[in-house]
Amino acid sequence: MVMLGKDLLGIHDLTPDQISLVLDTALSMKEVSAREIKKVPTLRGKTVINLFYEPSTRTRTSFELAGKRLSADVINISAGSSSVVKGETLEDTGRNLQAMNPDLIVLRHASAGAPQLLAKMLPSSIINAGDGAHEHPTQALLDAFTIRERKQTLQGLTVVIAGDITHSRVARSNIDLLLKMGATVRVCGPRTMVPLYIEKMGVTFVPRLEEAIEGADVIMMLRIQMERQRGSLFPSIREYSRFFGLNREKLKHARDDVLIMHPGPVNRGVEISPELLDSPYTIILDQVTNGVAIRMALMYLLIGK
């Protein structure tokens, strides 16, 4: 019998069977989200705390909605509004929250490994909603769900992940998940934004976007952090979008039924040209919809019993 453990800290800890379980469970959750009354009583009486040390509207909202659709009580704590900024350590914050006996803590934190620290300390379940540049497992799961919805399977697909790989937790979790599920992964971006040892993860590094997307089934464009320009990781937005942004011309190299994804929020016209953003290739809004279903599935699997 396939089950999840106490926590969801990263794709690293999941087996292919566990990944499939989450994706299958999310199918039911998507059906619930499509109903007129988008609520089931499954987690009535359970408490979910969204503990967000980094600003995030969409991920936090997605978790909040997921909890509420399952009838859990959801509380949001964000860095700006709590003692987090008053110098309390993560450890102390964790212990204080534990005193309120939550069933699940969803943690977003700028430090890699912060969810592991909390999980070791607390009996509550922990979901990693992004830790530094380490993992963002729920994003990878919702991406996989979205791809599977369109392509039926992940096995044998060629997926390109393009952009700032070095600083991307989305890239790391996706690489791990896609490889575990039998896809081929190519990464693309300027060398300044791709770790030196990236190929040791089992992916191919193709620096030029046109070549990278040759015959690709799926292209995941990563968000470019404008402030990285100051660190000279790239010379200018103009140059970046010219060589590493996706547009109709470059897309000719991909398959006709290629899917374009983005973890959002998109810098319109930088990573993806406006005409592609509004084209049927682009399934970014599906990703957002499916995000709620995946997070519902995880909540059910972690604290539903």
Binding site: L196, Y197, I198, K200
Partner: peptide, 13 residues
């Protein structure tokens, strides 16, 4: 260290 583990862990090398 900047190496294979740091690539996986996403930590600055």
């Amino acid at each position: 260290n900047e190496g294979i583990p740091s690539t996986y862990l996403g930590m600055r090398g």
